[in-house]
């Protein structure tokens, strides 16, 4: 990650725009409290934290630059959603779909774009509209399956 993914501007721009980055070497003695607090078991292990230290999103495993950028942006959008910042979540999910439409994170972004729109305006029809797009654009994704009850 330090040699391939993190040096790329497409990654650092997103990381710096939304977060204060913190690295923890899991081999160091002084890392033990953080390892225990966040139940860390395997690297790479990324967490998005609120300012009180509570975890809002996580993912494991190496990702190349474009996939990392898409996943991080999707994660920051989800953090916004969980903080009830619906309009900002919509903006960031939309950015995932505009910039990284073929990424592994894109189906999740489309699923939760509908959720953010619904939470902002429960009277609107945006949830079904976005989920209908999910059926067409990402038919084999897990996120399509997660909304498949409306296809019955």
């Amino acid at each position: 990650m330090d040699t391939v993914t993190y040096p790329e501007t497409i990654v650092s721009e997103i990381v710096d725009r939304f977060s204060i980055p913190l690295q923890c070497n899991n081999q160091e003695e002084e890392a033990r409290p953080l390892v225990a607090r966040y139940h860390h078991v395997w690297t790479p292990d990324l967490r998005i934290l609120d300012t009180d230290g509570s975890e809002l999103y996580r993912w494991n495993g190496y990702l190349p630059p474009e996939e990392f950028a898409a996943r991080a942006l999707c994660g920051f959008a989800h953090a916004r959603l969980r903080m009830l910042q619906y309009a900002q979540a919509e903006e960031e999910y939309s950015e995932v779909l505009r910039r990284f439409p073929t990424s592994y994170a894109a189906p999740e972004a489309l699923y939760f774009l509908g959720v953010a729109q619904y939470r902002r305006d429960p009277q609107g029809n945006d949830l079904r509209k976005e989920w209908h797009k999910l059926q067409g654009r990402y038919p084999s994704s897990e996120w399509r399956l997660k909304q498949s009850f409306i296809e019955q």
Binding site: Q23, P44, G53
Partner: peptide, 30 residues
């Protein structure tokens, strides 16, 4: 270039001041 912080409390304080989140990356240098 990402400027990684090393201490959680420092990162949380800075995130609060800048209205950002903290991105925590556990890594193994080996």
């Amino acid at each position: 270039m990402i400027h990684w912080r090393k201490h959680l409390e420092e990162a949380l304080d800075e995130a609060g001041q800048q209205r950002k989140f903290v991105l925590l990356d556990f890594f193994n240098p080996g």
